[in-house]
Every structure is written in C-alpha cells, then in structure tokens.
Design a protein around this nucleic acid. Sequence first.
DNA 1: TTTTGTTTACGAAAACATTCGTAGAATAAA
DNA 2: TTTATTCTACGAATGTTTTCGTAAACAAAA
Lengths: 128, 128
Amino acid sequence: MKKSAIKPTESELEILQILWESGPSTVRFINDRLNLSKKVGYTTTLKIMQIMAEKGILSRNTESRTHIYSSNISQDDAQQQMLDKLLKTVFGGSAKKLVIQALGNHKSTQTELEEIKKLINDLEGGEK
Amino acid sequence: MKKSAIKPTESELEILQILWESGPSTVRFINDRLNLSKKVGYTTTLKIMQIMAEKGILSRNTESRTHIYSSNISQDDAQQQMLDKLLKTVFGGSAKKLVIQALGNHKSTQTELEEIKKLINDLEGGEK
DNA sequence: TTTTGTTTACGAAAACATTCGTAGAATAAA
DNA sequence: TTTATTCTACGAATGTTTTCGTAAACAAAA
C-alpha cells in the first residue's frame, strides 16, 4: 500500500517539529514554543492545529477540556518523503551531491562520520 | 553579506529545475516541458514566470519579441539553503540521520560511495 | 458568588498562489 | 495583402494558507 504524500505547509511543519520532539501536547504548549522564535497568536495556532486534525495529520484527545494533540505521521516517514522530494527537485536525483553538501557544511562528530563510513562499507558489501 | 532566503513555491521550483538543467529558455519551451508531466496552460506558465521576474528570481532578455528567461539563483545556492532547512525542520539538525537515509534508500554507484568515503576521510583529517 | 482567566468553536479577513480568458501587438503563412 | 499563429500584458476568478476577533463554555481565583 502506497502511503499518501506528506505535504505539510510551512506552519504545519513547525508544529509537527515540536510534536515530534516533545510528544503529544496542548495548543498552549505548542504556541508558547512557537513564540520563542516568532510572534504568533494563540487562536492562530489553535486554528491550524484544528485544521491539521481535520486533514488527519493530527489526532486529538478531547477527554479533558484542554485537548491533547499528537502527530499521525512519524518523523521517519516525513523524513523519507521530503528527502526524496528534495533530492528529485533540487538535486536532480544525485544522492551523492546531497550527501556531500550535507557533510561538508554541517559539523558532524568523529563518531557520526565513522558510522556513516560503516554504512557505506555495508552497502558496498551488499552489492558485490 | 547574508543571502536572502530562497523560498520558491511549488510551481516556481518546477520552472527553476528546467532552467537549471537547460539554461535560459522561453516560456514556450518551459511550458512544453511542464506539459510532459502535467497539463498546464501557456498563460499560466507565462504568468508565473512574469511574477518570478518581478520577485527577482528570474531575469529576462526582452530584445526579441520572444523573451528569454534565466534563473538568478544558482542551483548550488538553492541546494545549500533548502538542504539546510530540511535538515533543521525535519531531521532535527542531524546530518548523520539525513545522510544515512539518503544513502540507504537511493542507489548510488560504487564510485560515488568511494568518493563519499574519501570526503569523510578528508573531514576527519581536517578536524585532527 | 462574582470576577478573571483559559479554552474551544466559528467565521471572516488578509495574504499568497494558481489558473486562465481576453485583448492587442508582432510575426508568419496563405 | 489578408489570414492565422504566437507572443506579452493584464485582470480577474479560484483556491489555499495564515491570521485573528468574538462568543460561549468552563475553570480558577477572589
């Protein structure tokens, strides 16, 4: 079964980030977090989260008056699909170019680099 | 000097892709290309490209009646900025996770993998 | 209890993106 | 020259996203 495309809007993505990081949350919590980096009204955040729930992106628990929202799409699935898309639309499909760009411009620890090398060795082995 | 954020819309990105690949082009050429994968009217494409020119994303040469459009943003800059953003918003800043996902799910040639390993070795050397 | 604050629901405005019809100018074909 | 085609400009309709004001329900504080 093919998963339907994950295409959150800009605002939706900001909210998803917080939910991925912090788990199920209230509108108040999300809005406070958003306001650390930009001014946004409470009802604005509420509205967007309600729309996300309608769209099926979020679920909500309405047992208590203060609703608790959680993401229906995993960070993994979003990563997979959005990476694929970026690769196709901006990198012309070249994973190598993307990887080099990612490694070259962002500090990675020695350990991380070793892990990546190990992965590459595995991939090479598997293709023999 | 900090470069202003590159944030093309969906349609704009499709057009940029073609310009990056084929170089300066006419509206007709772009529209024909777009129509290989989806139906879109000529004046629609024209309008979007005119708007892109207004925004400064494209330049156009109007010497002849048929205008020639070219991209003002390089594929490299777009790659850099959009990758940074994806990394921050969807991968929580973990380049490792992104790289692993990219390598794991897209066929890369032996040669490419070797080149990536070489890059990693260089990075490790540089940090000593 | 009364007042104050918090939360959801709703609707509508504002901003932005997409689509296309029509008109007029320039060119090409008949 | 006349007709048909191609192109730009323009404006408007449509669709989507973002923003927020207001009202009602509820809860907490005074």
